[in-house]
Design a protein around this nucleic acid. Structure first.
Lengths: 269, 269
DNA sequence: TCAAAAGTGTTGGGATTACACCCATGA
DNA sequence: TCATGGGTGTAATCCCAACACTTTTGA
């Protein structure tokens, strides 16, 4: 590796950015179906000028990766993420397609349930349902697909599901969320048994009535429910508590991004 | 994010490197137990001068991440990797512990079965068994643990197991490898059934005798055995065939690294 | 009393485990 | 004929999908 001059010339180091797939659960539509929504940012430079892309920003040495990801969130939405997890790092020189080579450290985040229409609009930002995405810049479509795949495979983690329901919830609500994310019907009776048997939930003792029918028991996640499943020393996602600490360390991380339009990082020329 | 000057000042961009955990299956010891071995590199700079660390190298913009990882392999061992997969990207500013902030894109690789004693020794490189590792620099111990965890969770993938046995093998051999990697005893009879039922294997028609007992049937992995399990568009590991293409694109990737001593990348000051 | 949702029971199949057992082989 | 490993059988268990069923509620 590297004959001759071992010292790396500066122009040989690629650009490095952090890119985020921000997922939210939308409201039910006419067909009683809920979808995942995500915000995209319109590119203001070549290549892919005018195309939609994932939000991102440059990586600064003084910030952790998670905090950088957190800041890409703040640049596109005022919502607070409740879960954040590293996805994958993409760095193929080919993916820049005309821009300078760019390494993207990708994260995915959950921001809970969102009524997209009620969000304060931001310049150059728009939300899309996962089954109605526009063409995306670069390899961003692949990154989105991967993020959704990961969410589906995390759906048995309290850290994740906690974000998609309220603090307390009925089993039917939990079931509806699971069906929405999985994108397939799930037998309610079996879901109930499986979920209760997992030991993740505890009864609040209260009940909630939705229509005029029999009220349903309310549950919450047990406080110790997200104990490390396999090996505590391994990289894991961050839940709301950990994220608030990450955010607290950030100077102007969220709230007013002022007149700044949201950024996309990837491979800008 | 970022009030005022949006253009990133150069000194705010962190160093970026690629780090690899190179795993090999060692020979059986007295107790008939086999272990995972990995090569480490002695650091020649502060911090952690003299400590053992994972091999790594800087990331160049013109190379893919996989090729960079491949080159960290070439810098520590002449063995050809048969499997390579991205692990995780570590980038906490705290992890540099006195060096400049360093983002490490970590890979893990398999180089098959190795008799460590017979390897050509390299300057500043030594192999260690996974249960007899020295103290490692930085957070490298955690990275090793994570790599082994990932290997264990990939053991049902033909791409991976193929690397740990020969082209053809008896079920007992396959069983021994699984036990060694999992680190626990596995019922042979059930292993046999499960493995055959998975459809990954096909009989060669030949037989092999080890002692003086009844000869065992030889199997090989089916050519189409590693079809994408879940979703083809997702990031996956690379097997030997794909790696040879990656390596072919590299100018002086393996073979003679000449008088160059192996490098560690992480967080050098 | 009725619709709608809450919640329970029952059954069968598939996968896994533990362990006993038979078979083939050459010394 | 015997030890050794190759290979099969089997019963117990667990988990899960399917779906019928009972209960509770307010209108």
């Amino acid at each position: 590796m590297g004959i001759g001059n071992v010292s790396e010339r500066r122009d040989e180091a690629p650009q490095v950015g952090v890119t985020s797939v921000i997922l939210a659960l939308g409201p039910a539509d006419d067909g009683d179906r809920r979808r995942l929504w995500l915000p995209l940012v319109r590119r203001v430079r070549e290549p892919f000028l005018g195309a939609w892309a994932l939000p991102g920003g440059p990586l600064r040495a003084c910030r952790s990766l998670e905090r950088s990801a957190y800041e890409t969130l703040a640049s596109t939405t005022d919502l607070h993420p409740g879960y954040l997890e590293q996805l994958y790092t993409f760095g193929d020189p080919e993916r820049s397609r005309g821009g300078v080579p760019m390494v993207s450290i990708c994260y995915w985040a959950l921001v809970g349930q969102v009524d997209v229409a009620s969000l304060e609009p931001r310049h150059n930002v728009a939300w899309f349902a996962d089954d109605a995405l526009p063409d995306l810049a670069f390899d961003h479509r692949r990154i989105v697909d991967y993020a959704i795949w990961r969410l589906r495979h995390r759906l048995d983690m309290p850290k994740v599901v906690r974000e998609l329901v309220g603090a307390t919830f009925t089993l039917r609500e939990l079931h509806a969320v699971s069906e929405a994310v999985e994108g397939r019907p799930i037998d309610l009776a079996n879901f109930r048994r499986r979920t209760l048997a997992s030991g993740m939930l505890e009864e609040t003792g209260e009940r909630r009535r939705v229509g005029r029918q029999r009220p349903a028991a309310l549950y919450r996640f047990r406080a110790d429910a997200d104990a490390p499943a396999d090996d505590g020393s391994l990289p894991q996602g961050f839940d709301a508590g950990e994220l608030s600490r990450i955010a607290a360390a950030a100077p102007a991380s969220h709230g007013h991004a002022g007149a700044l339009s949201a950024l996309t990082t990837d491979m800008r020329p």
